[in-house]
Every structure is written in structure tokens, then in C-alpha cells.
Design a protein around this nucleic acid. Structure first.
Lengths: 208, 208
DNA sequence: TGACAAACGGAGTTTTCATTCCGTATATTA
DNA sequence: TAATATACGGAATGAAAACTCCGTTTGTCA
């Protein structure tokens, strides 16, 4: 995975987003249609094949020219960012739902379970979590911050309900999720494996 | 990370080794010296900067020409493989030591701890574990198999000593290790994080 | 120490992509 | 429906890296 940069700087497979929430002026009808279609295709392709897919192919599958992709998303990274922002939005909504519907004891664990299950079929989720990595040097903003806040809310509730040991921080959760999600994708042969790993994780997080 | 392949096949960032245990005929003195030096430099470079480092640079740092690197290691992947084989050898030795010195209750956990600690400073270890991924389609051979067997021995002992729940399989351990190692590397800012994660993991693995 | 096989170095080749550019096509709107 | 700003397509560009080739150098051994 990892986007190939044409100039300099060896790539360290981390992605830094600016979380630009740009206001969109009125697009011509065909333009809007194409933009949407590209985003849709990119979402599917990144999810199933990872980041290494060339832009040419995304353009092809979306039935548009390369130029069109680039007009809407100035770089490959920008396209990817757009996909991730969408996805995080989705996760945040799910989490909020769980916060309301489930009790504090289970909301957190249900969310972990959701994330890990999704990660077996969606490679983009991993990048999504990764981009929420707290970098110490570059504080989170925009949707990444929202995502972290939501996760924090879930965690706090669970800790108040005494169902998660309280030395755990959001960063720990993010780190663990990121790592495990990443490995699920490797070992997708054994269908029970995610279950077992999830149960190990949950047991470990519970207070002793 | 992931090696850029010149021809076809989109890269999926998984590495498949053949674990060739080649018998070495007598090399000329300078050749042996160079080979060793390249391997040494590659080990250090891969560990600290990951796989994305160009061969040119490894050659440069080793004080040899590119051609020399390629004469000893026909592809970049072969060079990487050689590094990993060395490293696995090292891990196996450590594990065997622990099997003898420590009691069954702690040997396994000590080994996990070792792996995770190493992974914070050695990015190659992650690839090492990854290459031990059971692929169902391609059974393990050579050193990867040895490594898995050793891990299995540690796990069995721990399970017999009732200190690890017994539905856990080696594959689970590999998956978890791989994942967590991967995440350590991302979040290397918080020095306590590895400790907490390790403790979550250990608690989770213990029988309920 | 001279012959020569074994190694060496590194310029050049090849491949893969991201990204740019510009001539052509088409929504929009008056 | 004509004028025109917007978009479109995709060939061309450029850069990064892996890998090859061959003229030059050097260890080895008689």
C-alpha cells in the first residue's frame, strides 16, 4: 500500500490529512455525477484492493478519463482522504447509535467488534484508523478529531461502568485497533480467528 | 513499505519467502567481506527505516556498488529475506533459551514481551512475523516453519501449565503479535504504551 | 609475479505510476 | 439555439526505483 510520491521523501506509509472541510460551489450536472461516481468506485476499490491501485484504473472503472479524476481530486492522496472522511463519518454515526441504544457496558465492545469485523473486508478502514494516530507533533483536527472524541466517549462510559480497566487511554485503543485490524486482513482464511482475537482483546481490556 | 516490482502484478504488501537454505561454495575473500557488510547494513537500515529504502542507498552505506549488492542478492526481496532469516534465527534461539531457563508459566509471556519490545525499535521484525503468516494455500517451510514450531512449543507449554486459555492457536498468536507489533511502530511517542498493550494482551490470553 | 577467473562499480535500461496540459465536447443560460 | 464557461479525455511528461550489462579491477594460485 502507500501512495507513490513522484518527488523526493521516502515514503513511510503514514498519511497525514488536513481534513479540509471545503464548501462546494455549484458544479455542472455532469461534473457532480462524475465526482460522485469516482468517489464511489474509489471507495470500493480501496476497500477491496488497498491503496496500491493506480489512478488510471479507478478512472477506468468509473468510466471517466484520468483528467476528470484529477480535476475533482487534485492528488491521489486527496481522493483517498475523501474516501476516508466518508468512512469515518459512517463509523461516527454507528458509534453514536450504539451510545444511545446499547448500555455503557456493551456499547464500547460492540463498537470494537464492528471495527474489527469491518476490517476483514475493508482495507481502507485500517488507513482510516491509522490517520487518527495521535502524532504528538501534529494534533488531530476535523473529522479525525471527531472520531477520536467519539471513541473517547465510548471508552469513558465503559470505564465509568467499570467494564474497562481505567489505565487505558484512547490512544491505546486506537493503537490496538489499528494493529489488530491490520492483521485480520492477513489471516482471513480462518473465519473463527477474528472472534477469538476479539475475545482475547475484550478480556484483556476488562478490569481485573 | 513493500517492494516495488518492475513487472506487472499489483503489490499487496505481503511477502512470500522460499526459505532457500543454499549451500555456499567458497567465495573470494573480498566477496565474502562485501556480502557480510551488505547484509549487516541492510539489517540495520531495514530495522530503522523500513523496507522502502532503495538498494542504491544500502549499497552506498555499505561502501559497495549496486552491482555488488545484486551479485550477492539477486533481488531486493532476496536481500530482505536474508535479513529476515537471520532475525528469525535469533528469535528462535531466544525462545529456546526461555524454554529452558524460565518456567512454563512465564516463558511464553516473556517471549511475547521480547517480541513486542523489539518491534518498537526494529521495523523488520514485523515483516518477519508477517512472513510467518499461515497462508493455508502455501504451507510454511524452512525457517518460517521452525519459527512457528518454536512458538507452538512455547504456547503448548503455557497451555499445559494452564496459563493460557486453550482455545488459542499459534495462528492467533502470530496474528496478534503481528498486529500489535505493527501498532507499536506507529505510536512510538508514548513510552508507556507498549507496557499497557502488553498487559492487556497477556490478561486477555490468560484463561478466564 | 604473471595469468585469469572471480568480483567490482555504476551508467544505462526498463517499468510503473502520479500528475500535467491542451484540444475537444457539452451543460447552461440568455 | 448560439455563445461560452465548464468539463472532459487521454497522450505526454517526469520521477523514482529495481535490475542489467560490460569494461575495469583484484584476489588467487601456480
Amino acid at each position: 500500500m502507500s501512495i507513490k510520491k513522484p518527488s523526493g521523501s521516502r515514503d513511510n506509509e503514514s498519511v497525514n490529512f488536513t481534513d479540509t472541510t471545503s464548501e462546494q460551489k455549484t458544479l455542472r450536472a455532469d461534473a457532480r455525477r462524475n465526482r460522485e461516481r469516482v468517489l464511489e468506485v474509489a471507495t470500493k476499490v480501496f476497500a477491496t484492493e488497498g491503496l496500491a491501485v493506480p489512478i488510471d484504473e479507478i478512472a477506468g472503472r468509473a468510466g471517466v478519463g484520468i483528467g476528470t479524476v484529477y480535476r475533482h481530486f487534485p492528488t491521489k492522496e486527496a481522493l483517498f482522504e475523501a474516501v476516508i472522511v466518508n468512512f469515518k463519518q459512517h463509523l461516527i454515526e454507528k458509534a453514536e447509535e450504539m451510545l444511545v441504544q446499547d448500555d455503557s457496558n456493551t456499547a464500547f465492545y460492540n463498537f470494537l467488534s464492528l471495527m474489527l469485523r469491518e476490517s476483514t473486508v475493508n482495507r481502507a478502514i485500517i488507513a482510516a484508523i491509522a490517520s487518527s494516530a495521535v502524532n504528538a507533533h501534529r494534533p488531530l483536527t476535523g473529522i479525525s478529531l471527531d472520531f477520536q472524541n467519539t471513541l473517547e466517549k465510548l471508552l469513558k462510559h465503559a470505564q465509568e461502568a467499570k467494564s474497562v480497566r481505567d489505565d487505558i487511554r484512547v490512544t491505546d485503543v486506537t493503537a490496538i485497533l489499528f494493529g489488530l485490524a491490520r492483521s485480520m486482513e492477513q489471516y482471513s482464511d480462518d473465519p473463527e480467528l477474528p472472534e477469538r482475537i476479539l475475545s482475547v482483546l475484550c478480556d484483556g481490556l476488562r478490569r481485573r
